[in-house]
Each structure stands twice: as structure tokens, then as C-alpha cells.
């Protein structure tokens, strides 16, 4: 999923301060929990409370889109709401506000979230881990399902650098050494021979800036 966090409320308040009539648009998509209707309504109430304290009155509308990165879904879902609003406050990842900006060119759009990475969610402790860089050339089949491009601090492709101690990275003692994890996993799978397959230099041009699926 895309991992996002809510921006500091002060920053959001500052961004929306020029406007009064604002549509808060949630997104039911990738994040967990989804930044959907509940998050949108909670944000509305928080901003109203903050506004009360500062003597500022807002007029919020609230809705949520199934996937804000989908231009068709977003356009049709937001159309009934945008008639008399001055700005859209988006709860989606970075793709959401950009979709809104593109299809409602006359409407200012403000992000309410900071987008961090494509991640794995450890729900129990609510800690998220970066797990995919979207490099465009996936090698997980060779690495036991653990991505060295993302999870090795140095992004090494062909085995550990030798700097790790006790399974932790030499650059960050809290971070697991991805290559040690890969080694253990391949050993468990009985596929240690894969680690000998030296990966050729990655073709980063494969990442691309546009693709046709």
C-alpha cells in the first residue's frame, strides 16, 4: 500500500486559511486504514475546532472517492461537490491531489497527507516499512521475496557489503541488513544457489516516467 501520514494540523490550517468553503475529499484506496469518510469527517471536526480557537470560520463539505488516483472515478465523484467550493483538501497520497488538479484546473487543491513510500504495514505497532521503490525491474524472484533495492541502505544487488553486525546495517543499527534476511530466507527455501546468480547492473531506465499497461 501507499503509506501516508497526516500533515501537522498547523500546516493544513495555514494552507487552507485563504479559503472558507472547502471540500475535504477522502480516498478509500491503498492506505490502511483508508483515509476515507471517517478520516475526512474527523479532520473536518478538528479543523473546525482549531478554527473556533482562532476565530476563523470554515464551511466544509465532506466526501470520499473510491480511488482518488483514478481520473474517471474522481471526476464523477467530486463533480456534485465542487460547484460552490473554493478549494479541495485531499486526504489521498500525492497522486490524488494531482488528479484533482488536472481535472479541476480552476480549483486550488491542498494535500492533507505526506506520502512516504510503498510499504508494509505492521498494524499491531502501527509501524510502516518501506518495501518497494517501484524500480520498474523487479528481482524479488531471485532474492527470496525481499527487496535489496529498497531495504538495503546501499541498494546493493549482489550480496551483503560485509559491514553488518548482528544482522543490523552499519549505517543504522535499528535497520535489518536486507542481505542477511535474503540469505536466511533462501537458505530456508533451499535455494541458496540463487544468491550466486550475480545480478547484472539494474536497468533504471525501465522505471520510466510513463508506461502503457
Amino acid at each position: 500500500m501507499i503509506v501516508t501520514t497526516l500533515k501537522p494540523l498547523d500546516e493544513i490550517l495555514e494552507s487552507i486559511s485563504p479559503y472558507r468553503k472547502i471540500l475535504i475529499a477522502g480516498c478509500d484506496g491503498c492506505t490502511q486504514p483508508p483515509r476515507g469518510l471517517r478520516e475526512a469527517k474527523t479532520l473536518k471536526q478538528l479543523l473546525e475546532l482549531a478554527g473556533q480557537l482562532k476565530g476563523k470560520k470554515f464551511d466544509f463539505k465532506v466526501t470520499s472517492v473510491v480511488k482518488q488516483c483514478d481520473s474517471v472515478l474522481t471526476t464523477s465523484a467530486l463533480k456534485p461537490y465542487v460547484e460552490d467550493v473554493e478549494a479541495v483538501l485531499s486526504l489521498a497520497c500525492g497522486a490524488g491531489p494531482q488528479t484533482v488538479a488536472e481535472f479541476f484546473p480552476d480549483l486550488p487543491v491542498i494535500p492533507a497527507q505526506n506520502s512516504h513510500f510503498i510499504g508494509i504495514d505492521d498494524r499491531e505497532g502501527s509501524i510502516m516499512y518501506d518495501s518497494c521503490t517501484a524500480c520498474g525491474d523487479c528481482i524479488l524472484a531471485l532474492t527470496g521475496g525481499i527487496c535489496p533495492v529498497t531495504r538495503c541502505s546501499k541498494g546493493l544487488l549482489s550480496g551483503a557489503c560485509g559491514g553488518a553486525s548482528n544482522g543490523k546495517c552499519e549505517l543504522d543499527s535499528e535497520r535489518d541488513c536486507a542481505w542477511e534476511l535474503i540469505y536466511e530466507r533462501l537458505k530456508r527455501l533451499g535455494k541458496l544457489d540463487l544468491i550466486r546468480e550475480l545480478a547484472p547492473p539494474k536497468d533504471y531506465s525501465a522505471k520510466g516516467w510513463r508506461v502503457t499497461p
Binding site: L6, L49, A50, L53
Partner: peptide, 11 residues
């Protein structure tokens, strides 16, 4: 969680 958010606006 909601207290963390309310902290940000002084409540």
C-alpha cells in the same frame, strides 16, 4: 491517537 491530534491545536 485523537489526543495527539488535539495536542496540535492546543486541546
Amino acid at each position: 491517537r485523537i489526543k495527539e491530534k488535539l495536542d496540535q491545536i492546543g486541546l
